[in-house]
Design a protein around this nucleic acid. Structure first.
Lengths: 338, 338
DNA sequence: TTATTTTACTAAATCGTTTTAGGAACGAAA
DNA sequence: TTTCGTTCCTAAAACGATTTAGTAAAATAA
């Protein structure tokens, strides 16, 4: 394994100082009054031997890593991996790389990841906070570390945030079911106090109560979705046979729901109308196609990077007013909600 | 933003040397003959002020980052994001973090990502190589940088590799269609020379030719799948109306195929039998359910990290015989191939 | 001629660790 | 009293860059 050549080696080889080499490599030759002749010579030699900078050393000295930490619920989830894809593209374009971590929506895991990446001196964070993270978020803010919350926010801490109007989106979705003559609309959601889930629940409640309909709510633990969702939803349907439509708070819950409706031989939308929160490739192909509240993932990703880089570039964060960017949702109306 | 405290600060505060602090923090106190009393005192103080190591500095000095670069085709693809999820979990457990890059299966982009992460001194790479990367892979090998290829390998370079027997899996899938009395089996694949695609093609050809059946092959450019696949597959079906079964070389091609069959009002499996390479959540729910060749993603991920860490831990890589780990595939037989 | 400015460069400190090589203090052995 | 081992700790170099605060020499001005 040939040792990598360093600026020092270049300097020695060309009989000049490392300072000069560094200036030239960083394009500060002109500004620092290095002659064109020497600049040429250095650049040529550097190219010849194929030197590349040791980013670790550079980062240590400058305090900049050009790495952004993306902490999402789970990389193996279409919504989040889609965000990861867009965020990566957007970040790359602006000279940043992404280091990710799946929080599994667990507070301890998220906290641990934040600390790990802080020690690695990432330039900033994009975080989908788990529950009870107010203290940690507050700490990040106090330390002046750039970060943007995503998907859900912390009620008690003012921070940059990109997300959707979950309340309004949810209400509209339920309104749409009502407009299609569904009367007994069940809501299947997570057992979670996170803002996005809370708002979706409130939206559902607002819609049904404003039409004087009865509310049917089923909450499922996030950590147990895969094990128990099918059973729980089945029980929910059996206990409330009058339900003629279902609204699912996430796409993976909706998938579980489809499985249940299949098992129960209930047809969509004749027996049960259906809308899911978050779109999914399946929904376009399923028979019937499934109506879904769609988050503009590309737009959100762009905003996330925008806000974050704005923080990273201005170090006088404290002066800035935290920004909440609420992007509009779209309901992709398909056959399941007829 | 309070300046972070360093080992130097601790040493100064306690009136001892940084060496001592470092030894203690790295658990070398005993070995280096630091007294228990002092060890206690340092540990207590460190805890009190909540010191954490600057990993950048540590990495610079030790040459270890504990970061693995995962270069996959596209994070926004269920197969790869699933791999990313497992690889992350496996790596985390063993003290490593993942920095990822989506290559989009483009040679230049992949090359660029490799170089970028090399400059960042990642400890190793997991790579799904794009086409024509032999030279780059050879270079990595020469430089003694630990890496494992995944999903597809480089014919001309001996390297560690984790993948499947694509030839055999493909042949079995086609054999299964034949056993179900399909006679004219079309194969829809990518226009690619990569090993995994090449082997799937060979598997298909072997199966049809051994049964003296005619081959119908459609190749689509990876970069244009989203734009043209539906049109191309439609044309393919129209030009070859005798086709009574389709085998798709990837799950996203199969999704395009489903769209086409829908449009053409062809029913599965009565008009056209169908098998996809790579499973997908949709396939379990689609009506009818779709038969798929399934890669054991969890197992592959574990093997990837295993092989890679073995390289990272032994620096006498040159002595090791490159290992090819071929994991068995499973055909999830569902209704579409009846 | 001398003073000043400009041009073209560089020595050395620094970022925060790890690690090599060694040193002081003390007691025991010769 | 010298010598030798222990025990416990440290000075300083190193990793590879950036950057501050210069300086020497040449050009220009006075």
């Amino acid at each position: 394994m040939a040792k990598k050549v360093s600026i020092k080696d270049i300097a020695a080889q060309l009989n000049i100082s490392t300072t000069t080499v560094s200036f030239i490599l960083n394009g500060k030759g002109k500004e620092k009054g290095i002659s064109d002749v020497l600049t040429e010579r250095v650049l040529k030699y550097v190219k010849e031997i194929g030197y590349t900078t040791n980013q670790l050393a550079k980062s240590l000295r400058t305090g900049k890593t050009n790495i952004i930490s993306l902490l999402i619920e789970n990389i193996d989830d279409p919504f989040f991996s889609s965000v990861a894809g867009y965020v990566e593209a957007e970040a790359n374009q602006r000279g940043y790389k992404i280091i990710y971590g799946s929080t599994k929506n667990e507070t301890d895991k998220t906290r641990e990841l934040i600390n790990l990446f802080k020690d690695r001196h990432v330039d900033g964070f994009i975080i989908t906070p788990a529950e009870d993270m107010e203290v940690d978020i507050m700490k990040l803010k106090d330390e002046g570390i750039p970060f943007v919350l995503f998907d859900r926010y912390c009620e008690s801490v003012q921070t940059d945030y990109v997300g959707m109007d979950n309340f309004e989106s949810s209400r509209k979705a339920v309104d749409h079911l009502i407009s299609q003559n569904h009367k007994n609309i069940g809501f299947v959601t997570l057992n979670s106090d996170q803002s996005q889930m809370f708002d979706r629940l409130r939206g559902y409640e607002a819609a049904v109560s404003s039409h004087k309909l009865e509310a049917f709510i089923k909450k499922i633990d996030y950590s147990k979705v895969h094990q128990i969702a099918v059973k729980e939803i089945t029980a929910f349907m059996n206990e409330n046979p009058q339900i003629d439509a279902l609204f699912f708070a996430t796409s993976y819950l909706a998938l579980k729901g489809l499985e249940v409706l299949n098992n129960l031989n209930l047809s969509i939308p004749d027996d049960v109308g259906l809308i899911a929160f978050d779109d999914h490739e399946i929904f376009k192909l399923y028979k019937p196609t499934i109506t879904a509240v769609t988050q503009p993932v590309a737009e959100m990703s762009k905003q996330l990077i925008n806000l974050l880089l704005k923080q990273i570039d201005n170090d006088d964060i404290s002066l800035q007013q935290p920004k909440h960017i609420i992007v509009p949702s779209v309901i992709n109306i398909r056959k399941s909600s007829a």
